[in-house]
Design a protein around this nucleic acid. Structure first.
Lengths: 140, 140
DNA sequence: ATTCCTGCAAAGGTTTTGCAATGGG
DNA sequence: CCCATTGCAAAACCTTTGCAGGAAT
């Protein structure tokens, strides 16, 4: 543990300020939950439950709004894993994922271990913004 | 053009029979739209609109049912591309996709051109069922 | 005749939106 | 004080489901 709680909180405030988002009580709690303790994958509902469990009074609508604001600010990446739910990843680097289809669990694969080779040139007038790799797992 | 329309229709009927699905009017039309003319990516709504435009009387619920029945029979693959919509691919081989985020358009990448290397071993008790690669494109 | 399939409408789940009330700067 | 932000409830959206009528074997 190298940071005090106060230092981490100051860091969180700085994140919000740089993203041009007013550091409201709700946003501070949510960014703390998201960025305060390593890389995470969350859904809106999951994060909302966590905030409520932590004693924060915040609505689900605000969680959705905040997640999208953070995504627009480049603090989160949206993942298309499963048609029915939207996952957000606090690790915005270009890394791959394992996905356990039965459990709905996501696991990061370190950024530099996976290489995608032999990609064709994109159609004219277009460029690659991101390469998503999802490795789907089933129980043996 | 090597097949007559009748031959293609016979082929379609054969698909359904092998999948243990009664060759009803709706299923015949839908499988013909899906498999009658090369590889395709469709959403339920898109396929429904196409069927209606072709003069077929079919409900959206039946299109959903049929797409899932075809997927269970291994005739289609479901793609997670975008949180809000489910895409189905008539090409069930393990290939990659370009996705144009602005247009929502999907383009196949030939199966053998892309290689994913350096994947770590799956967690104990699990094995890889499929590797999905989506190359997201933006306008330059 | 029996079983499967279809259509409709209603329910389901997730996400977005409109608007009045609240709270930071 | 002003304007961004919040919360609520309603709406929007895609998808699934229940069930009665219809079609296939």
């Amino acid at each position: 543990m190298t940071n005090t709680s106060t230092e981490r909180q100051a860091c969180t405030m700085e994140l919000l300020r740089q993203a041009n988002l007013r550091p409201t009580r709700q946003r501070i709690t949510l960014s703390f939950l998201l960025f305060g303790n390593g890389d995470r994958h969350v859904t809106a509902e999951h994060l909302h439950a966590e905030a409520v469990a932590a004693g924060e009074k915040v609505s689900l609508a605000t969680v959705y709004n905040t997640l999208h604001q953070f995504r627009q600010a480049g603090l989160l990446r949206e993942l298309a894993i499963d048609g029915s739910k939207t996952y957000f990843d606090t690790n915005t680097s270009n890394h791959s994922h394992f996905f356990d289809e039965q459990q709905g669990a996501l696991i990061d694969i370190p950024e530099d271990s996976v290489r995608v080779e032999g990609l064709p040139t994109p159609p004219p007038g277009m460029r690659i913004s991101h390469v998503d790799v999802v490795v789907r797992l089933v129980r043996e």
